[in-house]
């Protein structure tokens, strides 16, 4: 019973840390996918008297990814709806070119304003519309959610680190006598801490597997029944095979650091 409790006291904080790391991995994948979606859906509208090309606009600002020309005829038809063909021809003659300008990343409003100002300086460009208000509110919500989740992960980490430190103190108490006796009889540090390392490695493996099970459950069961469309549509992002290796390596690193600290703290310092 005591042994199970001893294991759980390390497995639980380790799991909390690994959950935090898995959150970061999943969250990064989801946010970058969402950011990409927002970026792809968004475009600056440019009205110009002359023809614009992607290389030309890229030379003005390297945040510009591509330029898509809008069909002038469709616009003219919409404007001249119900009028005679002569009116359409007249409008087509004077109608400027319309472009959707796509960006390389999901930028802040300040960034958009800067691009807008640069484009307005170009000879022949009549107007630039960045749809600032709508863009700004989406961008702010996105950044806020990202920040809140980052704060949550940091808090989770702090609490987990405190629990791991507590467990290191327990280990120190439990293994101090044995490690000191072994040192008196000439055991090197690797051998003295070997037993503790074996125990901790087992805990690391258990914590990693439990974490994997939790995230695989979320991926296969919870996300299917979820009301959140985005989660449903991005099920694949919830747990990747590579995540298992990242979590395992992280758990081993935490274990190695913890055992090393305990071994250092219990080593003998000659008096005199």
């Amino acid at each position: 019973m005591k042994s199970i409790k001893d294991h759980l006291m390390f497995i639980l904080p380790l799991m909390a840390m690994l959950i935090g790391i898995e959150f970061i991995l999943v969250f990064n994948r989801i946010t970058s996918s969402y950011e990409n979606k927002l970026k792809n859906e968004y475009a600056i509208l440019v009205v110009s008297q002359k023809n614009l090309t992607t290389p030309y606009l890229r030379s003005i600002d390297d945040n510009i990814d591509s330029v898509e020309a809008m069909n002038r005829e469709d616009i003219a038809k919409e404007v001249t709806s119900g009028m005679q063909d002569a009116a359409l021809a007249a409008i087509m003659k004077d109608l400027p070119y319309f472009y959707r300008v796509h960006l390389t990343s999901y930028m802040s409003l300040e960034g958009l304003k800067k691009i807008s100002a640069e484009l307005k300086k170009v000879n022949g460009i009549l107007n630039v519309e960045i749809f600032g208000e709508n863009y700004h509110s989406k961008h702010t919500i996105f950044r806020l959610v990202k920040m809140l989740l980052n704060i949550f992960i940091v808090m989770l980490f702090i609490v987990s680190i405190m629990l791991v430190i507590k467990q290191m103190q327990v280990w120190q108490l439990a293994h101090k006598d044995r490690m000191k006796i072994m040192e008196i009889f000439g055991a090197p540090m690797m051998l003295r801490s070997g037993i503790l390392f074996k125990v901790a490695i087992i805990d690391a493996i258990i914590a990693t597997i439990l974490n994997m099970v939790i995230f695989l459950f979320i991926k296969s069961k919870w996300s299917q029944n979820s009301d959140i469309d985005f989660v449903k549509n991005n099920q694949d992002m919830l747990f990747n095979v590579s995540d298992f290796f990242i979590l395992f390596v992280t758990a081993i690193v935490i274990v190695a650091i913890s055992v090393f600290v305990v071994a250092i703290n219990t080593r003998e310092v000659p008096e005199g």
Binding site: E183, I184, F185, G186, A187, P188
Partner: peptide, 13 residues
């Protein structure tokens, strides 16, 4: 330290 551990391995206490 390494020599001390080596010495201790040959001492009975």
């Amino acid at each position: 330290k390494k020599q001390l551990l080596q010495l201790r391995r040959n001492i009975g206490i």
